Simulated scan of single mutants.
Amino acid sequence: MTYNRNKPVPEQQQSAFDALGGEEVLSRLVDTFYQHISSHEEVRHLFPADLTETAAKQKKFLTQFLGGPPLYTETFGHPRLRARHMPFIITPVQAEAWLSCMAHAMDDIGLSGPLREHMMHRFTLTAHHMINHPTPR
């Protein structure tokens, strides 16, 4: 805790984006994640063959999602995640496959500990919120 004129002021907590290592590490995470996505039979069909634009959008979104600058909103408007994903059938199997790809990407870049746990918790909540079809297809 820091003090300002004899009043305790809580220290500002570092954002997950900054704790991760900012843009450089986030970019490595997303690129690694999409390498796993491109070879995962449960989810690769949900994505275009060329993942360049998808990865760029994901980097902007995750920067914002993890407490960094609001790059996604500045470029595309409010994320409206569930609405943007409605055109795609997302089952529990696909949500878990997405999470598995992210976990593998985190393994690959050496992300561990409380930050990883925090991020996976948030990703899990979001992935489960994206489910719009109850049965596997």
Rank of each mutant, 00 (worst) to 15 (best):
E53G: 04
P48C: 09
R28A: 13
H45W: 12
M86T: 08
G22T: 04
L29Y: 10
R28D: 13
M86C: 07
L66S: 02
R82A: 03
R44M: 12
H45K: 13
L81I: 11
Y72N: 13
P79D: 08
Y72R: 15
L81V: 06
A83T: 05
A55V: 01
H85V: 06
L29Q: 09
L81G: 13
E41K: 12
T73G: 05
T75K: 04
P69A: 15
F47N: 09
H40W: 01
L29M: 12
F65Q: 06
G22E: 01
Q35H: 12
K59V: 03
V43R: 04
T75F: 00
T75D: 10
Y34A: 14
G68H: 12
H78V: 01
R44G: 04
S38F: 05
E41M: 08
Y72H: 14
V43C: 15
L46T: 12
F65L: 05
P48N: 11
A56W: 05
E23G: 06
F33N: 00
G77P: 15
G22Y: 02
P48R: 14
S38M: 11
F47D: 08
T73D: 10
R82W: 06
T54L: 03
G68L: 14
Y34Q: 10
V30T: 10
R80C: 02
G68A: 14
H85D: 04
D50E: 09
F88S: 03
L51P: 01
R44H: 14
L71Y: 03
K57M: 12
P79I: 09
L46P: 09
I37T: 12
V30H: 10
L26A: 00
L81H: 04
D50G: 04
A83E: 07
K57E: 04
P70W: 07
L71D: 09
R82S: 02
V25E: 07
D31N: 14
K59E: 04
T54N: 06
A55C: 02
T54E: 06
K60S: 10
V43G: 03
P69I: 00
G67A: 07
V30P: 02
R84C: 00
L26R: 01
Y34S: 13
P48A: 11
G77V: 13
H85A: 03
L26N: 00
H36Q: 15
H85M: 01
K60A: 06
L66Y: 01
G22H: 01
R84S: 06
V25C: 03
R84H: 06
D31G: 07
F61D: 02
S39D: 05
L51H: 03
E74Q: 15
E24K: 13
V25R: 06
D50A: 09
H85T: 02
F47C: 11
E42R: 13
